[in-house]
């Protein structure tokens, strides 16, 4: 292996690592706020990427109807919960909060979709379709189980994953798609050619992380979400609604998932079920970050991406084996360090 190849692998690994970092962050956020291990994260990635790819061919993804349907079902549950105290204003607010984004996205998609639509608009439309799925799914599947065990929540997440994967097959079919790159530039830097898409991925990832960091450290809403993650009881005591925080976390996760899908759709052929393994690697990064620490998660994600691209070069059949086996010693170390604290619930 010469330097050029190494640098190429490095670039490839870090690009993937950036995506895993985003997904890992979303998983950490969702888990620490709601105790749900978000297996369906992978479907958000696949849906976002596939919708983006489909939009770039000028077609209208039927995902808009899934998005509308999920939001309607969640709205129905909201209204059922509020029954007896229906008032004009609160009713309007409930409808607007659930339906605004999916309806606007659906209308905009029907109006704007075409072979020559700007990639940026397509990307935004794809995001707008997937993001409402997060809060909708949270309302339907997880909010009623707020007191359930982590295991029950996990299995529920698997159920959601199966349902969404079936939906994915139904609306996108079994064939794979690839989207045009956001940037097709090639930058020569010494022995290395950097693709514009890699730069785009890094730039967007960095921007999203910066934005998240700003939200969590500067805005009261972001702090409230962080507070829920740090101490759920404490958050309830100051009046932060756990269900609202849960919906927000799911919304952010769905948006991040869709964004990751949009970013990788030009570099990987996506199938309806590709998301699962990508999500799983984000999960590896998240677990290595102990499901609570954001900086550790980002570091771990970089390591996962690197390990993956290096083994892909040497022994591509064993790529996933190596990625998932490498973590065992790390897990063991972490686990030994945590063993003492385990009993003090």
């Amino acid at each position: 292996m010469d330097l050029t190849i190494f640098l190429f692998l490095l670039q490839d690994g870090l690009t993937n690592g950036a995506i895993y970092a985003l997904l890992g962050l979303a998983l950490v956020l969702v888990f620490s706020v709601t105790r749900v291990i978000l297996i369906p994260q992978g479907e958000f990635v696949a849906f976002g990427g596939l919708a983006f790819a489909l939009l770039s061919t000028g077609k209208v993804p039927s995902l808009i109807y899934v998005s509308l349907g999920t939001s309607l079902a969640a709205l129905a549950l909201d209204l059922w919960h509020l029954r007896g105290s229906w008032q004009g204003a609160s009713l309007m607010r409930a409808v607007a909060w659930r339906m605004a984004l999916p309806v606007i996205t659906a209308l905009a998609t029907l109006a704007l979709a075409g072979p020559h639509t700007l990639l940026l608009i397509n990307a935004l439309l794809a995001l707008g379709m997937v993001a409402p799925l997060g809060p909708g799914i949270y309302r339907i599947a997880f909010e009623p189980l707020a007191e359930a065990s982590v295991l029950t929540l996990l299995i529920t997440a698997v159920g959601v994953h199966l349902a969404l994967e079936g939906l994915g097959l139904l609306i996108f079919g079994a064939e794979g798609f690839r989207a045009p790159p956001l940037s097709s530039a090639q930058i020569a830097a010494g022995p290395l050619t950097i693709s514009g898409q890699s730069v785009a991925i890094f730039a967007v990832t960095a921007l999203v992380m910066l934005a998240l960091w700003q939200v969590f450290s500067r805005t009261l809403t972001g702090k409230a979400l962080r507070a829920t993650a740090i101490n759920r009881t404490g958050a309830r005591l100051v009046g932060i609604s756990a269900t609202r925080a849960g919906a927000q976390a799911f919304g952010i996760a769905a948006a991040i998932g869709a964004l990751s899908g949009v970013l990788i759709a030009p570099v990987t052929t996506l199938y309806y079920d590709t998301g699962f393994i990508i999500g799983l690697k984000g999960f590896v990064a998240a677990i290595l970050g102990a499901l609570t620490s954001f900086p550790l998660t980002v570091l771990a994600a970089g390591a996962v991406g690197l390990a993956e691209s290096l083994t892909a070069f040497f022994a591509s059949d064993f790529k996933d084996i190596v990625v998932f086996s490498l973590i065992l010693p790390v897990l063991l170390l972490r686990s030994l360090r945590h063993a003492r604290a385990e009993d003090e619930e």
């Binding site: 702090k223 962080r226 507070a227 740090i230």
Partner: peptide, 26 residues
Amino acid sequence: LVAESRELFGAMSVLDNLRLGAWTRR
């Protein structure tokens, strides 16, 4: 309610803890 275990937001600053106390009047 000031709970027996305090239930503070440990990793956040004193100021942020107080600000979040006013959450319902945000």
